[in-house]
Structures are given as C-alpha cells and as structure tokens.
Design a protein around this nucleic acid. Structure first.
Lengths: 249, 249
DNA sequence: CGCAGCATTGATGCGCCTCAAGTAGAGTGG
DNA sequence: CCACTCTACTTGAGGCGCATCAATGCTGCG
C-alpha cells in the first residue's frame, strides 16, 4: 500500500507484486509530518531514505540572502531522497510543503535489496534518473521561458505527474501550494506570479487556487508552456495520459 | 588510460586499479569527434554509453524556435550519457563543443560489470547522481543569480571540475567555449554575456577568452557567484582544491 | 476582536533583450 | 600578398518584462 504509486506507469520499469512486497517489507517506520517543516538538512550524513506516501515535499537551495530556489517538488509515489543512498550526504534541504506521510527505508535494507534482486536495484537507479530528467526540464523552463511559460510548464508537469498518481483527472487537482511557492519554483517574485496567474485565468488557460488547480484545456496550456512530457517516461499505453496533456507537435 | 579521470577525487568512490581495468576492458571503441557535431539525438534507443576522454561535450534542450538551453557541460573524465543505460532513451541531445575523444561502452558490458562487481555498479550510479547534483546547482544559478553571478558561478564550477581533471591549475584553464555558448548555458543573450565579461574583466575577477580563462582570485569570483563546491562531492583531502576555489563562508 | 499569512493592486525603475551596425581575426583562393 | 568571407566579438540605442517598494484587501483562527 505504501509503495502503490512508486514507479507506476513508468515505461518498462513498473514494479511486480513481489518487488512491491519486498520494498514494503523494508519500511521500518511511517511518519506523519506537519506542513512547512524541514525534513532533511544539507550536509548531514544519512542512513535512510524517504518514500513519499501522501502530501507534497520540496527540495531547495537557498542563497546568501535567504531566498530559496526550489529544485524539485515531490508528489505521492516519489522516492524523495533516494539520491542520499549513493551520495550519503545531500547538497540541498528537503522540506514539507503540505502535511505529509512518508515511509522510511534504511540504507542497509537497500543494500540487501540490491544484492538479492539486481533488477529491482536497477529500477531504483532508474527512479533517481527520472528526477534528473525533471531537473533538466526545469533548467529549460528557467533558462528559456518567460514568466507565463514557466508557470504554465510547471502546472502541466504537475498535472501529468498527478495523473500518474491518480490524483488528477487531467483537468483538476488539489495542490496546496501558495503563490510564493510557485515563485520559488519558477524563479520569480510572488507579486509577478500573481499577475501571471490573473492573465492565465483571463485567457482561460488555468485557474489556480491554493486548494484547487483547474485546467480547462491541457493542450492549450501545454503549448503556452512548451511542455512535452517525454522526459517523464510515462508509459502511455497504460494511462489515458495522452488524451489530456500532450502538446500538439 | 581512458578511465584515468573517471570519478577521480570523488569522496569515497574513486576507483581501484582493478575497477579501472575492468572498465577499460569493456571499451569496444574509441572515437575522435569533430567540434560542433551532434553525438546523440533525443528519443533514439541506445545500446551503449559514452565516456569522455578529451574535449568538451554539451547536453541541451531546444525550444520551439530553435533556441537552446544547455543542461550540462562535460569535461574529460565524465561518463556523459550513463543516464542512457537505465533510461534507454534520452530526453535531450548531446553534442561536441570542441573536438573530442570518447570511449564507447556497450550496455551489455555494463550489465556484466554490475553482476560481477556490485560495488563498481554502485559507483556508476553515484556518478549519475553527481550529474543530478550539478543540475540542481544550475537551477539555483538560473533561478536566483543575476547575469554576472551566473557567469561567475559557471566559471567557478568549471574551474573546480577541471582542477579535479588536472586541466586547471586553479587560476587558468583552456576551455574553448564561445560567448554564445556561455549565453546558452546561463540563459542569457550573447550580447549581454559580452557586457558581463567586460565587467568581470574590469573588476579584475576574470579574463575570459575562448582559448583561455584566467581567474586571478578564485575566492572573490566564488563570492560574486555564490559558489559553494559542496555539490561536486570532491574529496578535498586528496587535492589542493580548497586553497583556490572555496568561497569564505 | 485582532492578528497573521496570503492575495491583490499600483507606481516606479532597472536589468536584460532586441535591433542594428560595425570591428577583428582566421582561414581561403586568386 | 592581398581581397574575400565567415564567424566571433563589440558597441550603441531603445524598449519591455519583471523586480522593487508600498499599500490595501481578504480569510481563517486563537
């Protein structure tokens, strides 16, 4: 149950029932976390990793003045800091955005899993590389899109990921982020995000509220944000993903 | 010899002689590549990965109008597209920036290596996660730094990586990038990069020429670019790295 | 009720982009 | 040896997008 969403619908690597059971068995603890709390600090030695079961987590780097840049947003099913398993120490902080539930898996268990089941080990590796692919999409977003494109791109990505987690129907989903969060994701100020959201609303592209995001026409939003979901490695034969989010090429 | 620089000076994972020999043995081909050529196209199925021996390679995503955003720059010793091993297909293109020499390692060999030597497999995984950590630093750069900071940060990073490859003495290194390349890395126009470089020169922070980059005082440049090399996971006990590049905290 | 956090709006200014020339250096052919 | 060309670099003028500064409104909650 805790691992239901992990790697679900990912092309070629979704887990077998046995693999899921093996992972479940290695969970030593399930925690409920308050919103807006730091979960892991950069530079600390870690002996476990964290699977996100419910809620939204973020990874971020802050500058000298305390301004944050988010470098990742995690949704249920993500193995948030599996990076910490090979790396031992993280280069960034991890924090909750909403209230969240996480499952803890000790690195010693991962050692055992990899020794017993190399195929599953490969899938764990794969999952960290999806995170890297998402980092690259974010680089594109920050480097080449204007403010409206950045917000549109992020919302398309989040919609696509939440569809895979069965937390979006393709047109609407709950998210629980503030406008300031969006600003820290998109490299903007919260004030400008506010104006961008107004424009997206006026153009009928997207209605963003902290409680609920609505996307009447995902294809149009995808065009505005130059969003192409290939980097998410979703197996489209297993979802109805393509009907709702892909940009016409 | 081809693998001399791979993971060198990385904390806790540098390769043993046996491991290097095993990797060398799996190289099936060594290629010399012309500058400014596409090496790998996004979306193609791959059955091998590429170790960079000499020269500079880039990874990039381009937008609808053909403008590029570079998402990575690779220096000798980098396992450029090891990501393609678990992922099978890349989400971005890979191209040479300068003339380059690469060693090809088939994925079938990597399968064998991982089966025989799980420790070495772990190190390969680690190396892909360093790339991800660099992606995150680039996100910080694009999201939170101004133009001068971005260029400064990139040059600090490149200096640090080239020190590890013995291709920089800490104050000067050959790079072979144009101002337009810098622009595609930093999310700027080449015109503005030109003005930024002039200012860096006038302030005595850095002299950038395509042939040679000179950094009189790496610490000052690191301060300007808010550069902290922790994300490169360099073992400072094995290098003189800390003497030349670290920003005072 | 009153506070705290989030959202909204306006005014102003700067950083970087865009458009437009013009220069310098490296390689090529007559 | 010098025109020719191509690419990289340089400089200027003008404008736009987003940041910054400053209020004000809204909502939930102790």
């Amino acid at each position: 149950m805790f691992t239901d969403r992990f790697l679900r619908y990912k092309r070629g690597v979704s887990l077998s029932l046995e693999e899921r059971a093996r992972l479940e068995a290695s969970i030593t603890e399930v925690q409920t976390l308050d919103p807006r709390k730091i979960v892991i600090r950069a530079g600390r030695e870690l002996d476990h990793s964290t699977l996100l079961v419910e809620g939204i987590l973020s990874r971020y780097i802050d500058d000298r003045k305390g301004l944050r840049q988010l470098v990742a947003v995690h949704v249920p099913g993500d193995f948030v800091d599996l990076h910490a398993y090979p790396l031992k120490v993280l280069d960034h902080d991890v924090a909750t955005m909403t209230a969240a539930t996480v499952a803890i898996i000790p690195h010693a268990e991962l050692d055992a899993i990899i020794a017993e089941r190399p195929q599953l080990g490969r899938k764990l590796w794969f999952s960290t590389l999806i995170d890297a692919a998402i980092h690259r999409a974010w680089l594109f977003r920050l480097g080449r899109l204007d403010a409206m494109g950045r917000v549109a791109h992020f919302l398309c990505e989040t919609n696509a990921r939440l569809i895979s987690a069965d937390l979006s129907d393709g047109h609407r989903f709950a998210l629980g982020l503030t406008q300031t969060d969006l600003a820290e994701i998109c490299g903007l100020t919260n004030i400008h995000v506010n104006r961008v959201l107004r424009q997206l609303r006026e153009e009928g592209l997207c209605v963003f509220r902290s409680s609920l995001v609505e996307i009447p026409d995902p294809k149009r939003l995808a065009v505005r944000g130059q969003f192409d979901p290939a980097y998410l490695y979703i197996d489209e034969t297993q979802t109805h993903f393509h009907e709702s989010t892909k940009a016409p090429s």
